[in-house]
Design a protein around this nucleic acid. Structure first.
Lengths: 343, 343
DNA sequence: ATTAGCACTCGATTGAGTTGAGTGCTAACA
DNA sequence: TGTTAGCACTCAACTCAATCGAGTGCTAAT
């Protein structure tokens, strides 16, 4: 059996209504709400066909139909129209991002918050570990007697710092010399490829400053350890409280707990994503606990690695809005990253 | 009517059972579970008295009794024994805090997380705005052609930084001179009392560097704006999902939303707190929406201002454990702050 | 191929009946 | 006078049957 235009129209109507109301849709409702020129009985026949084909299902014999996950998949593949951000929304996001790009961590939170606000779904953003970015510049700043600050700047302009103890005998010029040494050797290298051994042979000529060099290396190690994992931010997890399908407290609890834990989110989001918006509907997800949820995700390029942003909502999701929003936000993020950091 | 020893014992039994089970407690249960040498009938008489005095209430005639909020208040005032952290827990927290005290923001999150884990209630920590701490030290570090980094260090050792643009003509020594100027003038002043005018008269002698001075001042303003509000961190808000009294989805929703919003939390927590553990039971709270919750809070001294830590849970709370834990954590935080920053 | 008509299905709602934990009161007792 | 056994009473919670109605599937007419 093939899916002709009329079937398509009916399927679309049902999906639209169901997304809006979360109630099974009956044949009369389809005719009435979308003022088709066919009778309810005809629609019933078509609906029976669509059910047989697997695009619809019936909660029970005397109820209307709801779209199956396969139905949503068909909708996403063949009928969905992406709804991008409006002009105002895009402008707003631009401003939000432009404001304080230096503080990348707050920007990230801002973006995630924005996404969940706009869509009313839970949103996430994953920022690749700083370890994949490059060493650009190191500086050691004297703080007070016996203390200095190691400043590490990456190619993306991210600044990390850590205090170290230094012998009181060390002078400001010594620190400069050591910093220059680091800069010469590590310039342009990936942070996760910095090796202590590269500094091994040189240290002899700087014997009396060895302890400072060691401290600085320790500090770098500490900083990288600290930022070893991809950073995960989740916003608006409580949005799922609004969805009528989760009136079951136990189910709700499980999902909320899942979304509350950064680590779990890493399992939810596909490992490999392209820049294309990718949609996983219900059981297409691997993790058992979210097989009643859909995940919309896109990758953004950041310093050679791939970050991810996306949404998590019920299978009964406004896919057009969700996909369009994620796509818009992704392209704005990339734009800002390009403008700000690679110039 | 006065509350004699036996009444006290009965009230305590009922509170204990009710805290554990969340079910109304009957007269038989009191006798059985606490093996008292009196009959259920006697207990019933005493319970009737306690109800008349306002310490107990009945959900309906044929149910057992539950402690009223006044009952809990009496318990907290006259019978509660604080359960402090165990040796192991305290050691663990010490280690957690000792590890990376430099990153005060992650420490804060760690503490909050710890509190909610240990107690199974929602926990919060409020860190006073950095504005009340003192200017200790400023440094301007050249980054690359036309860019520098303003580093601001507070008396608590907190380090803030922001990038500024500088004219290419400015040399490293110039930056040092400007930084020295800032240090001389602002040394020991409170950050929120730094005034641009203090630099006004001096600027003439540094005319060609005026733009850098202005940029640096802007950077400081930006940093302070950024950290203008007290920082609020909440952990374990989802713990209330476990409490049987919140099986009503609507109520649940309202409370979760409340706890999800930093701003709202500022309204929940009392404005003025002492270092003493303070307990607000149900309707003792001002905010309407949490009059079925209790708040346990203590203040900790940090750089002349008062930070706050505490717990939010149902009125049916393990007050002894909650108060003891908060008290222990507070004293450990203060200890660490003293050791690390004021030395 | 489409449609009107009608019997049928089944979740949701309503209401009556039953159960059982727990109370209050009374009278007997130490 | 305080304590206790006994008993009638209360009321939420549960069960079960009756009813309702939205929506279907099928059949026969167009």
């Amino acid at each position: 059996m093939t899916i002709d235009e009329r079937k398509k129209l009916i399927l679309e109507s049902i999906i639209k209504d169901y997304v809006e109301t979360a109630e099974p849709v009956g044949s009369r409702a389809v005719v009435r709400r979308h003022s088709l020129n066919i009778s309810a009985a005809t629609v019933r026949n078509e609906m029976a066909d669509l059910e047989e084909m697997g695009y619809l299902e019936q909660p029970h014999t005397s109820a209307g139909r709801i779209p199956s996950q396969q139905g949503f998949r068909y909708f996403v593949d063949c009928m969905m129209e992406k709804e991008n951000l409006t002009e105002e929304e895009a402008t707003f996001l631009h401003q939000l991002l432009g404001e304080r790009v230096e503080e990348w961590s707050t920007v990230v939170e801002g973006v995630s918050h924005f996404l969940s606000q706009i869509t009313n779904y839970a949103s996430f953003i994953i920022v690749p570990s700083v370890k994949v970015s490059q060493f650009r510049y190191l500086q050691i700043v004297p703080l007070r007697e016996g203390q200095a600050l190691v400043l590490l700047v990456t190619d993306m302009g991210l600044i990390m710092h850590r205090k170290i103890d230094i012998p009181p005998s060390i002078k400001s010029e010594d620190l400069q010399i050591i910093a220059d040494l680091f800069n010469r050797i590590f310039q342009g290298r990936r942070l996760n490829e910095l090796k202590r051994s590269d500094l091994q042979n040189l240290r002899d000529e700087l014997r009396q400053r060895r302890s400072v060099i060691d401290s600085a290396l320790d500090a770098i190690d500490g900083l990288l350890d600290n930022a070893a994992e991809d950073k995960v931010v989740i916003s608006g997890a409580l949005n799922i409280l609004k969805e009528p399908e989760f009136k079951d407290l136990d189910k709700l609890k499980r999902i909320l707990m899942l979304l509350d834990t950064e680590g779990q989110l890493r399992d939810i989001v596909p490992d490999e994503v392209s820049e294309e918006v990718n949609i996983r509907i219900g059981r297409e997800n691997e993790l058992e606990d979210i097989q009643e949820m859909s995940v919309v995700v896109a990758g953004y390029k950041a310093a050679g690695a791939m970050g991810k942003i996306g949404l998590i909502g019920p299978v009964r999701m406004e896919y057009g809005k969700a996909a369009g929003t994620v796509e818009s936000v992704r392209s704005i993020i990339e734009e800002i990253l390009r403008e700000t950091f690679y110039k």
